[in-house]
Design a protein around this nucleic acid. Structure first.
Length: 207
DNA sequence: CATAGGATCGCCT
DNA sequence: GGCGATCCTATGT
């Protein structure tokens, strides 16, 4: 396992090649998501995730084996990133999981900022660091400088001055974590109520 | 705090 | 041509 500059353990790629995307989504809570963009480093503790279970999940872009130029990256190997444009404005950041050919992914829906506050404030056009600075999937990408054009890269791969990876972060107790239905997927019908969104309960959040 | 409406564009039909 | 794994602002309670 490689160590980053401040000594935190980067997650091994085998973590993202596990087969249970729901389990991975839960385990990512408390981990640290780090980016470097043109030399600017920003990071936050992952506080909210959602699992999307590939072909068998009606809420997934890859439902029923849907394969297009956009969703092709979901079929890459675990540990690659899937970033897509939502509502014409927002880049939504996912980490692809499972083996190559199985289009599972975890959407990162929220982080608690820990590093690079000045850069995140500037990108978010905010003046103060608050709990809402990066508590939504579009906000996460904006704060961390993740653009949808980066889709298809591997975690820890550098391209055009950009790199993103995941490190060990804070340990959580089972009671710190809540599960709930995913957001904005009413169209998924019988899959819309699956409790595949995970978040750190607010009372347990800390730096 | 809750709700409503506009922004904005690549992707799929 | 329509829409979305969202966010922000305005307005009302």
């Amino acid at each position: 396992m490689a160590k980053s500059i401040d000594g935190k353990q980067k997650l091994n790629n085998s973590f993202f090649e596990q087969q249970d995307v729901v389990h991975i989504a839960r385990q990512l809570l408390g981990k640290r998501l780090v980016t470097e963009n043109q030399g600017v480093r920003t990071a936050g503790i992952i506080s909210e995730t959602e699992a999307y279970a590939g072909r068998t999940d009606k809420a997934s872009h890859a439902w029923n084996g849907r394969y297009t130029s956009r969703t092709a990256t979901m079929y890459g190997r675990g540990g690659s990133i899937y970033v897509f444009l939502c509502y014409g404005i927002h880049s939504l950041f996912n980490i692809v999981t499972n083996k190559k050919g199985v289009p599972d992914a975890v959407l990162i829906r929220g982080v608690i900022p820990t590093e690079g506050m000045a850069a995140m404030l500037q990108r978010r056009k905010a003046e103060k660091v608050t709990a809402s600075l990066a508590d939504g999937p579009g906000k996460v990408s904006q704060a961390l400088g993740i653009h949808y054009s980066y889709t298809g890269m591997m975690l820890d791969e550098e391209q055009e001055g950009f790199r993103v990876w995941v490190e060990e972060g804070q340990s959580l107790h089972p009671g710190d974590v809540a599960a709930a239905p995913r957001i904005g997927i009413d169209y998924a019908k019988e899959d819309a109520d699956l409790p595949w969104r995970f978040y750190i309960k607010k009372a347990h959040r800390k730096r």
